[in-house]
Amino acid sequence: MSEVEQVHFTEQRLAEIDALVKKYPSARSALLPVLHMAQEDFGYLPMHVQQLVADTLGLRLMIVREVVTFYTMFREHETGKYRLEVCTNAGCMLNGADELVQHITKSLGINVGETTSDGMFTVTEVECAGACAGAPVVQINNEYHEKVDASYMDAFITKVSSSEEGGQV
């Protein structure tokens, strides 16, 4: 394996994981919450972080890989500061999610899954966000924005881009 940076959970995190594992019949059951913790700590889940999770829980790397790649909320690559996650499942699709994705990617000049060159925005399509009543839904850094249309997104992008600190969302 090539040179990878050594990463570790903090002592406090390890204690949390320990407490968590005890709640389940097997360590494998704690995989999802631990992956969320790892993503919180390290920003995203590259291979060496997945290996760390596997080692911590005593699982095979492949089991961790399977879970990470299954769920869209786990990210294997570095993303922009703002993750624009557009739900494209049935409810949102019928309410214009596809057009919304097209509009966002066109106005940012990137494709789905890509990050703008200034490192500000990443656009992804995600599976059902569970908020069909507010379709189309865009989740921006863990916050739901409902009944979104092109002008809402334009305003958001402009606001964030113009704000020096990145703005409040």
Partner: peptide
């Protein structure tokens, strides 16, 4: 790979239409 070979180095990645079998 999991049960017989004991290496566990094959797995199912992604899901739905993107699902694929891959070696680690």
């Amino acid at each position: 790979a999991d049960e017989v070979a004991g290496t566990g180095d094959m797995g199912v990645l992604n899901r739905a239409d993107h699902m694929r079998i891959e070696g680690i």
